[in-house]
Design a protein around this nucleic acid. Structure first.
Lengths: 228, 228
DNA sequence: CGTGGGCTTGATAGTCCTCAAGTCGGGTGG
DNA sequence: CCACCCGACTTGAGGACTATCAAGCCCACG
């Protein structure tokens, strides 16, 4: 989001930079209901956004990769309706949340980028809702793998046969509206079919084409991950 | 979104206004994949946003009420990933989509409103994904009723016992990830419990408190519908 | 080496889907 | 004004998918 800024934009962003820090895995970064939350840029590692349902069940809404922003919704609306936790060890750069309103006031191009980032987040939310609402467990799993692979690929070279995938079973389950036990059974079906194998925290996609097909996508090379 | 504009904002908005028109129920307004879609303000009636899954299944992502905007995501990202249809007879005001970039360039306060609108849309998406992923049919139905009631209430006085609810069974089913048949059975359970009754296209909420409880919400008077 | 958490796996049950037939109501054309 | 027709709604039986619960396994870590 902050790539190739103009001089004046860089000046604004630098002025609002507060600190940089590292976070251990599985630590709370933003809590739902919090007001005045900070604005963070992920410079390394993964995090995830989630909400808790009335009965305590956790729904993971999105995984956040390096280059993405935490707290933008909260900066715009004043309060965060979701929580954020680190998934892996995380490197964060913290900004003053007033960066957002300042950008709208004096750096329209930067404000537009921020708005586009929110819109892209909303699109991923739409996509997830569609998958959870319409697909069975196999398709959901295929979608998640494809989505996270594609999002990594668009940030740099990634080997489909040995690709980072730092989610635990419970994360997968909570993201897709399944249970850990059923995720496991379904993973085994995917592996048995020779489509993709999950080993610890690495993903091996044996056939991109068949995985895309399983996920219910037309062509693996396009669409698939309308992220930022 | 366009309430109480400043003079210069009003001038910009008026300059970008193209036409106003009426749309019959169940007509396509935006199609997924379309580029250069228009920007519309709903001045009367309801519409809904949806996506189609790989197997043709429809997921309704949001219902759009008067005062809300159609095509904002598309205006920011250049393409619409979802489709929009009218639900009831609809009154629309059409704008030039360049209104968005113009607002970012010269009317920061207006741009901020638009960004907040997108962020609120994203929050509703998050909320929907959480309900679909975590709740059973009864809770989902309670959520939908509560959500649409609250959103109407915040736009003006609404009678909980006789409240507009122009969705057909299939809309409810597609919004909540259920089937029409099961929606029906679940509606009957809600009615039997004396919580809410759906009659044609009117909703009667017999107990706001118990409906909120069913939906998995704490207090009916607050939270419940973090919309725009 | 002991311990604990996550993973795997099985049996059982519940929710929800599928399919199909029947009912109801509104709109249309005679 | 009535008969017709079509779509939407209703309702039932059966089955598929997924959740629940519980036990055993494996590995990492202390």
């Amino acid at each position: 989001v902050f790539r190739s800024l103009s001089t004046s934009e860089k000046h604004l962003v630098d002025g609002m930079r507060l600190s940089a820090g590292a976070v251990a895995p599985n630590r709370a970064i933003v809590s739902a209901g919090e007001v005045g939350v900070g604005l963070y840029l992920i410079s390394g590692g993964w995090a995830f956004r989630y909400r808790r349902s009335g009965d305590g069940c956790r729904q993971i809404l999105d995984f956040l990769l390096p280059g993405e922003i935490i707290g933008l919704q909260a900066a715009l609306l004043g309060m965060s309706e979701h929580s954020v936790r680190s998934l892996t060890p995380l490197k964060l750069t913290m900004f003053d949340a007033r960066l957002v309103s300042a950008a709208f006031r004096s750096e329209p191009a930067l404000a537009l980028r921020l708005a586009r980032h929110i819109a892209a987040e909303a699109q991923r939310g739409d996509e997830l809702a569609t998958v959870i609402g319409c697909s069975d467990a196999l398709q959901r799993l295929g979608f998640l793998m494809m989505n996270l692979y594609q999002r990594q690929r668009r940030r740099g070279p990634v080997d489909p046969v040995d690709c980072p995938f730092p989610l635990r079973r419970q994360h997968i389950a909570d993201a897709l509206g399944l249970t850990g036990a059923h995720v496991n059974r379904t993973l085994k079906r995917l592996a048995g079919a020779g489509i993709a194998v999950l080993n610890g925290h690495r993903l091996s996609i044996l056939s991109l084409e068949r995985l895309a097909e399983t996920a219910g996508l037309a062509d693996p090379t396009e669409r698939a991950a309308p992220s930022a």
